[in-house]
Design a protein around this nucleic acid. Structure first.
Lengths: 69, 69
DNA sequence: TATCATTCGGGTAATTTGGGCC
DNA sequence: ACTGTCCAAATTACCCGAATGA
């Protein structure tokens, strides 16, 4: 094993996020495109999502985005 | 500034890079073969990757425009 | 020298992407 | 406006045996 602590944020695949929210992976992709969910891209173009962000959204943390101007 | 030629760049193993991107180590190998990621070979043929390059790719250096134009 | 996890290779399923439509 | 489904193409994941690394 490597002793290199390449610390980083845990990432989730589209299907994993979709399972957590009980929606289609396609819907998760739409959230990412809409900027509602930040995503990291693999070198092949596939999306990865931050586990911490997904968890907070799942926990129902009130996110200040409904600000109707 | 060091008196030594500090050409020693921190290197990462395939599994470490794979963990950072949340992909299979085989996928990282594929990226190297495709020239998307520069690799250094051990004398036995195993690949090592530059940590600095990997981190820049993770943060998104040349990020494909995802937003709508 | 021996042991064990990892990384070679290839080959084949499964997933993801993107656009369009309901 | 939002989600689910269909399609084709691209990317990624898991399978094996053999070699390398520590």
């Amino acid at each position: 094993m490597s002793a290199h602590p390449a610390e980083s944020e845990a990432l989730l695949t589209p299907s994993e996020v979709a399972t957590l929210f009980r929606v289609d992976p396609k819907t998760v992709t739409r959230w990412a495109k809409a900027g509602k969910l930040s995503s990291i891209r693999t070198l092949g173009g596939h999306r990865r999502y931050r586990e911490s962000e997904v968890r907070e959204l799942l926990n129902g943390v009130p996110q200040p985005r409904e600000g109707k101007a």
